[in-house]
Design a protein around this nucleic acid. Structure first.
Lengths: 210, 210
DNA sequence: GCTATAACAGTACGGCCATATTGCTACCGG
DNA sequence: CCGGTAGCAATATGGCCGTACTGTTATAGC
């Protein structure tokens, strides 16, 4: 067998380069040659790891979305061990969606960049949809947990409430991005808290939840 | 002087063609040649009316946004003469944002298609921002009117409430588009009504408002 | 230490795209 | 009725892009 390379690491280098290019100059500006240069490798090597540009972009989108949901899950796990309320964890998680700092903004830009493409590419659309319903179902689960625990006092469809909360957060994200000056950070967070406060009206009776 | 042509009509033909192409295959698929074919004219003629492709795209974006706000304004005017409540008019107006039918979906796709570009093009960003704050200030005005009239009983910053309402509507639009099956039309409209109902809690004491 | 093969680089190629250029045509002003 | 300019078409051009192709290097297994 010949020399081996860390495929996952290489894929990461390439998709990270794509991400940086998108953040800097938009998805349109992403070419294989530029990506190679940004990643510090040759065009041939990029081809070696991604048979086609489409694959490269799909991998980038998948990775970014995966990183996001992973981060949210870690946040929740940490919150649970630290005994936070569900509302607090949810607030933290949803804040991840909003481009309030550079890292969040970068991720937001990438998600947005693929929005147009996803409308006409089945595989991108699938990743996008699964990410979205993943977030929504996590929030719904949190609401169900909250109902059991006592933080949520009112009844009502958890999925429906989750949709409203997530939609609201993403709407705030959009406005924050398009008109940062018109939407100061505290106002955004207050709005988010307010929305969460409509559902999480009680206090937890137990220490933990599943 | 030589023969004359209706410049505005030509611009409209071209930008309409661009819009159709975006809806069908995304902004990436829009080329000058394809646009000319779609509009039923020669490449040279497109060049005659738009010195560069950028101008063509900017004009398209501007037109679509303009058409949207015009439609909303007409809706409001009609609603006023017909003596609707402010909440009803607002509900109608915000529903225009959500891709619940083909026409709305087409517009939504175009707005989304330019999202990535706008992040890296000052002129597109300006159009986008102005459209957004335009909508928001209209909603804020409606809330102020509602306060005077009696439909809005609680105090609070109208701009802030407007932000929340519009953000919510756009979030619903996003979810409707990405996951249409997971968000049935009635649930979307109910959510929108619910959100509006949080602000418009009273009934109008007067017939009309400015 | 040989050898097969993965890892990697460089370049060539065919295609499409935006735009420049050129030329024809129709019609308004006089 | 005629000259000139705007309207319009067709083609030429130069560049970039994705990808195929060819070649080189390094190392794991024997």
């Amino acid at each position: 067998m010949p020399r081996v390379a860390d495929h996952d690491a290489r894929h990461g280098q390439i998709t990270d380069a794509v991400q940086r290019l998108i953040v800097r100059h938009g998805l349109t500006s992403v070419t294989v040659a530029r990506t190679a240069a940004e990643a510090g490798m040759s065009v041939g090597l990029v081809q070696h790891y991604f048979t086609a540009k489409d694959e490269m972009l799909l991998a980038t989108f998948t990775r970014v979305n995966g990183r996001f949901t992973t981060r949210v899950d870690e946040l929740v796990n940490r919150g649970e061990t630290e005994g936070r309320t569900i509302a607090e964890m949810l607030r933290q998680a949803l804040t991840e969606l909003i481009p309030l700092d550079d890292a969040r903004r970068a991720e937001f830009l990438v998600r947005r960049a693929f929005a147009d493409q996803a409308a006409h590419n089945a595989r991108l659309a699938t990743v996008q949809r699964e990410t979205l319903v993943g977030i929504r179902s996590r929030v719904a689960q949190a609401i169900n947990n909250g109902t059991i625990c006592g933080e949520v006092t009112q009844g009502g469809d958890a999925a429906d409430q989750a949709l409203r909360i997530v939609a609201f957060a993403e709407g705030l994200a959009l406005h924050t991005h398009i008109d940062p000056d018109g939407t100061p950070k505290p106002a955004i967070l207050a709005a988010l808290d307010d929305q969460l406060g409509r559902v999480f009206t009680g206090t937890c009776r137990r220490a933990q939840l599943g």
